[in-house]
Amino acid sequence: MNQLREYYERRELLSNLVLRELRSRYKRSALGWTWSLLNPLSSVLIYWVVFGVFLKVKAPIGDPSGQGNFVLFLLCALIPWNFFSNGVTQSIESLVVNAGLIRKVYFPRELLVASTIGGLLVTFMIELGVVVVILLIAGNMVLPWLPIVVLLVILQTLLVLGIGLLLSGANVYFRDVRHFVNLLIPMLFYSTPVVYPISYVPVNWQVAGRSIPLRSIYEMNPLVQLVGAYRALLYDLTFPSIGSLAYIAVWSIGLVVIGQFVFNRLDHRLAEEV
């Protein structure tokens, strides 16, 4: 509760730090904010060519939307995924990058983690807006589902914040954390149904005569649920299962609580160690 109040009291600082993040991101680049759209565009292009064209991954037909376009299928999951992966990798670095500030001024340091994610959240919302426009043009009437999308965005932001809090403090003491995470991110990417539908994952896997319930294990990854929920809302135009929303919420809130707890523990000697 204390933490919530602290966040609330320093909301002005949080918004200022987010603004700093946004203003400085594309300073001195000719294309400026266009980059924040060009980056996802290029990855969509790559995955479409490699997975959609070369490997012939078939997008499942959306129920009830009837949509079957691979690029749309990709977009609905890739944009949230990018927010997750950028959010995690950048928030882990947020304390080290702002070492000068930590050593010289006092303010709640978790705001550095939160503002990094806040900056990315703004970009994510813009990208999501573009995706919505594209979907509308393609005939997917997503507008009624947007309130639930917003809820999902909030849950995802908490998830990223939780991981950021958990690992950014640790990264100050052990700079390996960042490298370790950089290793994990592509693994997570391919164990989440972003570039392929979940139906490609076998329900059971036969190894040495034994059957492993691969799909059930796979679905324990909260990102699988998250991506699935985004797809249900934006691609299929249906309500995601309450179970999976609850599962995401438990992970998100749990990670924020644990993350904040760990952060408070590590905060103690931050100014000396950073």
């Binding site: 002005e12 600082l13 200022n16 730090l17 603004l19 203003r23 050593r103 001024v105």
Partner: peptide, 29 residues
């Protein structure tokens, strides 16, 4: 605290933007 003047200034931002940022860091609304 005046420990280091201009701590938290962002080099790429203007003086005006930095005044608001620094002020917020120091606790001003």
């Amino acid at each position: 605290a005046l420990l280091e003047l201009g701590a938290g200034f962002h080099p790429e931002l203007s003086g005006r933007e930095n005044v608001y940022l620094n002020g917020a860091i120091l606790g001003l609304s």
